[in-house]
Design a protein around this nucleic acid. Structure first.
Length: 903
RNA sequence: GGGCGCAUAGCUCAGUGGUAGAGCACUGUGUUGACAUCGCAGGGGUCGGAGGUUCGAACCCUCCUGCGCCCA
């Protein structure tokens, strides 16, 4: 695949198909580098059920840019990759498949079902790993991980046992977020709140034993959005300072329907301003009420429960729910309760005035209510009282909070710190049990009395229990429990000393901000507790990729963009460049196909430049250091290359992906292609030119550096060109980063080429504005030139003639008659245009330039005549202004003189 | 209700104190064989509004308007 002629057309698909297998088969994603500094990045494991979406494309492109950059800089860069077993998602997929055959999970034993999941995983899981390869991601596939691998099971079990031993995992009876659709508990992070149209019903709760309120009423009015829960009400709460109710605190209410006698309690949770000021309390079915209930002295074990796992009504412990309600689904129960309350006369209707001005009575007040939904099932979540395993997140959060505060972990962009602290400082116990079959089974065993024994093995548990018969906990762990171990369990912990190997802490973690709490924070908690150090030095959070109209992409909206389709259309390199160029520290990225197309064009431009170079015998550079350069143009481009490499290093150090992309784009196209290649054409095209050897060496070196610098973003085209340009001792992916030694910068050469570019541009501009035919070659006269300018003209005559279509340069006076006059520096350049020139057009052009200069002169004079500026501004700013004023003033004078000569 | 972010050229976005840039789009034009997926030249912005700090504000502060996200 080396040293061949570069084809005329650039075909990304062909190149991509060849290079990826080459890199992977030769083990170049993780070459042997025994003495190199380790550098480690772990990839957020995609779900085993997942396929590549545009967010993955962004996330993985950024990571690959970092990895390829560090690999080029000589690090022993390791990018850990793998797949997450994704408990709920995967179980759902397999259950859906069974459903198509008319079967369900419970038709099988647990072992049979889990076997089916493994079968599915082997056959169709992990599609995404192939798709990541198409994107060009250089992960260490030889160490591919799965969160259900045996060593992962061992690590997870050990962590559970150890945390339990440390008192950081415990079993507790609390309200959980119960998903009746999936029939499992989920964590608070997996609950999404959505505002929906609902109702607010007002009920009378009669006071018992003849008690009355201060105003004589014999009932308390309560309001609720979930009337069915009254079947399990255990109290009515009023604010302790609310005088309307002070006479009844401690008295009883006799609940309609169940006839349960419940106390009126004083609790600050009741808001006197809201509704009647009294609230019904259902501790077993509401998070706030649970707390009120506990404060009122009701133990969680005594709290009434009225729903089963399917959210159907079941009899409460006191047996007071009438039979007619038992077995009703929760929303039917709601209607039934309202109907019953209305029938019994306890419903307080809501009066509204119609458009016609009439009064109408409704059963309930319409109201927007926040409703919790499960993020996977989309079912309305039910707070439900159960025994579950909890992680003491509050305790584990302490170290990460400190680490972020003292800078041991850097969060980029910093603005996320506040959100991070806000969550970590108000964190709730993390419910980690899931009532699923697919996942890490909780290593807890119970004896007949319900005592739990937590151990690595059943045998150990049995020993703890003194040999009594035990049954294992049916539940599995939250998927995020295992992925929280990702930075070290993937690398062999606890059997391997990942810290000693320099692989922990990882160097950086890249993730979307949407999993900051789900994953990033939990890795910090686990990593810091278990390994005593931060899991990563830096956390880079990027945003979301949005649709072109700014909307969030979603399957249900049908506005998703398939990254593989974009790769087919524009090439993986172009998509990657787009992602890199648009990534400016965490801001969301709006999809813009025009840009992707533009970056495809950029790749084509580079392709053609390389083809041109090859046509003139320019090829693989022989040294990493820049070759010796003597001409100004060669010195200049070497300097520009080095400055670009420095800009790229700076961009990477700050995680400024956009700056990286912009710098290499600008250098390649606007410096190398637009100017350098054009400037050296006279040297290349003249047979036996004295500068030819040097120029070819420099051009080859610069082109190589472009390939190196661009490689992290566009790996495919650069590797292809690398080999096409000559025989290489190694592949580009493992070549060496640019040696950016500032000693190779030459200010004088840079000044000369900058001057040349300014002159060419000025001549082109005036020709264009004066409508000089593009092909016309015209003589150039120069007046007032300094000796330096004269020397520069002499050195650059060939380039000038070519680029500005000049036919000879003369220092003698220009012939009389109409001419274009161009002011550059101290000199004025004259192009006679007798008979061709439109004098009015030239006058207008000169006047436009003179006016622009004049405007700046006035502004600068204004600033410099301000005493405060002179007194308070830094000396450098004043000096700069003075210099600029002098330059612009001189330019204005020359332009005025030119105008005068024109008459 | 609390918090965060955004508002810069027609579009998508850079720009954290010295007088505004890129890509695309637009207009004109095409010269010697790298490239029309291109070259050259050009037009286009009172930097959302108001006030303040400063010699100087797109940039810092306050308020306002509009949009987005997160939490309750």
């Amino acid at each position: 695949m080396s040293d061949q002629q570069i084809p005329k057309t650039f075909d990304p698909a062909d190149i991509e198909g060849r290079w990826y297998p080459h890199w992977e088969e030769k083990g170049l994603f993780r070459p042997e580098r025994p003495n190199a500094d380790p550098w480690t990045l772990v990839n957020p494991p995609p779900n085993v059920t997942g396929s590549l979406h545009i967010g993955h494309a962004l996330d993985n492109t950024l990571q690959d840019v970092l990895v390829r950059y560090e690999r080029l800089r000589g690090k022993d860069a390791k990018w850990v990759v793998g797949v997450d077993h994704a408990g709920i998602a995967t179980q759902m997929v397999v259950e859906r498949q069974l459903g198509q055959k008319g079967q369900k999970r419970t038709d099988f034993s647990r072992e049979e079902f889990v076997a089916k999941v493994w079968e599915w995983k082997e056959e169709s899981g992990g599609q995404i790993t192939g798709q990541l390869r198409r994107l060009g991601c250089s992960m260490d596939w030889s160490n591919e991980q799965f969160t259900m691998d045996p060593h992962f099971v061992k690590a997870v079990t050990k962590v559970f046992v150890d945390l339990h031993k440390d008192g950081l995992i415990y079993r507790d009876k609390r309200l959980v977020n119960w998903d009746p659709g999936l029939k499992t508990a989920i964590s608070d992070l997996e609950v999404e709140q959505a505002e929906i149209k609902g109702h607010f019903w007002h009920f009378r709760y009669p006071l018992a034993d003849g008690a009355t309120l201060a105003d004589g009423r014999d009932y308390i009015e309560v309001a609720t959005t979930r009337p069915e829960t009254m079947l399990a009400d255990m109290a009515v709460a009023v604010h302790p300072d609310d005088e309307r109710y002070s006479s009844v605190v401690g008295k009883m209410v006799e609940l309609p329907i169940t006839g349960r006698r419940i106390p009126v309690v004083a609790d600050e949770h009741a808001d006197p301003e809201l509704g009647s000021g009294a609230v019904k309390i259902t501790p077993g079915h509401d998070f706030n009420d649970f707390e009120v209930g506990k404060r009122a002295g009701i133990a969680p074990a005594d709290m009434l429960n009225m729903l089963d796992a399917d959210a159907h009504v079941v009899q409460t412990a006191d047996g007071l729910i009438p039979d007619e309600f038992l077995g009703l689904e929760r929303f039917s129960a709601r209607e039934a309760v309202v109907a019953k309350m209305k029938e019994l006369g306890f419903l307080i209707p809501h009066s509204v005035t119609t458009k016609e001005g009439e009064t109408e009575e409704l059963d309930a007040e319409p109201r927007k209510i926040m409703t919790p939904y499960g993020d996977r099932s989309n079912a309305v979540i039910e707070p439900w009282l159960t025994d579950q395993w909890y992680v003491d997140a509050e305790k584990l959060a302490e170290a990460p909070i400190a680490a972020v505060k003292n800078g041991d972990i850097g969060i980029v962009p910093e603005t996320w710190k506040k959100t991070f602290f806000n969550w970590m400082e108000n964190i709730q116990p993390w419910c980690v049990s899931r009532q699923l079959w697919w996942g890490h089974r909780i290593p807890a065993w119970y004896d007949d009395n319900g005592n739990a024994y937590v151990a690595m093995t059943e045998q150990e548990a049995s020993e703890q229990a003194g040999g009594v018969p035990l049954t294992r906990d049916e539940d599995v762990l939250d998927t995020w429990f295992s992925s929280a171990l990702w930075p070290f369990a993937t690398q062999g912990w606890p059997d391997t000393d990942v810290k000693g190997e320099g692989r922990y802490p990882n160097d950086v973690l890249v993730s979307g901000f949407d999993i900051l709490f789900f994953w990033d924070a939990r890795m910090m908690m686990m990593g810091m507790h278990l390994l005593g150090d931060v899991p990563f030095r830096d956390l880079y959070l990027h945003g979301l990729v949005r649709a072109a109209d700014g909307q969030k992409m979603s399957k249900s909206k049908g506005n998703t963009v398939d990254p593989l389709g974009l790769i087919d259309m524009y090439g993986a390199d172009a998509l990657r460049f787009f992602m890199t160029a648009m990534e400016s520290q965490g801001r969301d990225i709006k999809m813009d196909e025009g840009r992707i197309e533009g970056y495809r064009n950029f790749a084509t431009k580079l392709w053609n430049a390389a083809r041109f170079a090859q046509g003139y015998g320019i090829g693989a550079s022989e040294s990493v250091a820049p070759p010796a350069a003597t001409t100004a143009v060669n010195k200049w481009i070497v300097g520009e290359t080095i400055r670009t490499a420095q800009a790229l290093d700076l961009a990477m150090a700050d995680y400024r992906f956009d700056a990286y992309a912009a710098a290499i784009y600008q250098f390649t196209w606007n410096r190398f292609c637009d100017w350098y290649l054009e400037l050296i054409k006279p040297v290349l095209q003249e047979e036996g030119h004295t500068d030819a050897a040097e120029t070819k060496a420099v051009a080859g070196w610069v082109l190589d550096q472009i390939l190196v610098m661009l490689h992290p973003v566009m790996p495919f085209i650069t590797e292809e060109l690398w080999h096409k340009l000559g025989a290489r001792p190694y592949d580009l992916i493992v070549s060496k980063w640019v040696s950016s030694d500032s000693r190779s910068l030459d200010p004088e050469a840079a000044a000369e080429v900058d001057w040349l570019i300014e002159l060419v541009t000025a001549i082109r501009s005036s020709r264009s504005e004066l409508n000089v035919p593009a092909g016309a070659r015209l003589p150039l006269y120069v007046r007032d030139a300094s000796t330096e300018t004269t020397a520069r003209l002499d050195r650059n005559e060939a380039a000038l003639e070519r680029l500005a279509r000049v036919d000879g340069i003369s220092a003698s006076p220009a012939p009389e008659g109409g001419s274009a006059q161009i002011v550059v520096g101290e000199a004025t350049f004259v192009i006679p245009l007798e008979g061709v020139i439109d004098l009015d057009a030239e006058r207008a052009r000169l006047k436009k330039n003179a006016d622009a200069a004049g405007k700046e002169v006035r502004a600068l004079e204004g600033r410099l005549s301000n005493e405060n500026f002179l007194a308070k501004a830094p000396e450098a700013a004043v000096e700069e202004a003075r210099q600029k004023l002098a330059d612009r003033k001189a330019e204005k004078q020359r332009l005025d003189a030119a105008l005068e000569r024109l008459g």
